[in-house]
């Protein structure tokens, strides 16, 4: 990767064996209530959580248990009704929408179940997309995007459009897009949900590699026990509480 290498060095991968691991995300008394018409739905209720830096966590639980809501809160996409959220040294609850957007661009890489690539852009352009928000020159952006695609094994598909790629390849482009701005945390919402077993395993191998070699903290929501097995920590949510 041509991006700042601080979080990508494979040499630092052994830190997890150290006894003192700092938390990259710290949630205290987090409560999230949704208003649906006249009904108030409490999705998370006084949740406390610490996510160790460099961990690979799987969040499991039944539908409606609050997994995605928790992921969205940690990723700065949503705000808690009550409680505090501190991620990568920033108190998200105090940030404005603009500050959150800038913080997300720097800190979080997103992987979605449906890949969500821009159909009008090539693989290379899709990966370059988050870098358009930086002041990097075009040549440097392109170089970093190529590097990210090489990391996910798609250097031979740079100029293919999403419709010309398989589901697994599309998800790998999405991972390269998540990786290109060298974020500290990668959040993945059911990243293997739309894939066959073989492609899912490839994606999970890749996530594992990002965690181990590049020291990315990975938070993955999944229903799939097979996928969760790859994580170093598995957390279960049920009715808004960790069990």
């Amino acid at each position: 990767m041509a991006a700042p290498q601080g979080h990508l060095s494979p040499a630092e991968g052994a830190y997890r064996s150290e006894p003192q691991v700092r938390a990259i995300a710290r949630l205290r008394g987090v409560r999230k209530v949704f208003q649906r018409g006249a009904e108030r739905i409490t999705v998370l209720d006084g949740l406390d959580l610490e996510v160790p830096d460099g961990s690979f966590e799987a969040l499991m639980g039944p539908s409606g248990s609050g997994k995605t809501t928790l992921l969205n809160l940690i990723a700065g996409l949503d705000r808690p009704t009550a409680g505090t959220i501190e991620v990568a040294g920033a108190n998200l609850t105090d940030m404005t929408d603009g500050e959150l957007a800038r913080w997300r661009a720097r800190t979080i890489g997103f992987i979605f179940q449906s890949y969500n690539l821009m159909p009008v852009l090539t693989a290379l352009e899709n990966v370059e997309l988050p870098l358009l928000l930086t002041k990097l020159p075009a040549a440097e952006r392109r170089k970093r995007a190529r590097t990210a695609l090489r990391v996910v094994g798609l250097e031979h598909r740079l100029h293919h459009f999403p419709r010309q790629l398989s589901g697994g390849q599309e998800q790998r482009v999405a991972i390269a897009r998540a990786l290109v701005s060298d974020p500290q945390i990668i959040v993945a919402d059911e990243p293997t949900g739309d894939l066959d077993r073989h492609s899912a395993d490839e994606i999970l191998d890749l996530l594992e590699r990002l965690n181990k070699e590049f020291r990315k903290t990975i938070l993955m929501v999944t229903h799939d026990p097979h996928a969760a097995e790859r994580a170093t920590i598995i957390r279960r949510l049920d009715k808004g509480a960790l069990t």
């Binding site: 990723a75 996409l77 929408d97 603009g98 957007a101 800038r102 997300r104 661009a105 720097r106 997103f110 979605f112 449906s114 969500n116 821009m118 997309l129 988050p130 928000l133 897009r177």
Partner: peptide, 14 residues
Amino acid sequence: TAEYGVLRAIGFWP
């Protein structure tokens, strides 16, 4: 809409 959601998620502004 979903694509705009992704763009907003990865840091694009309104």
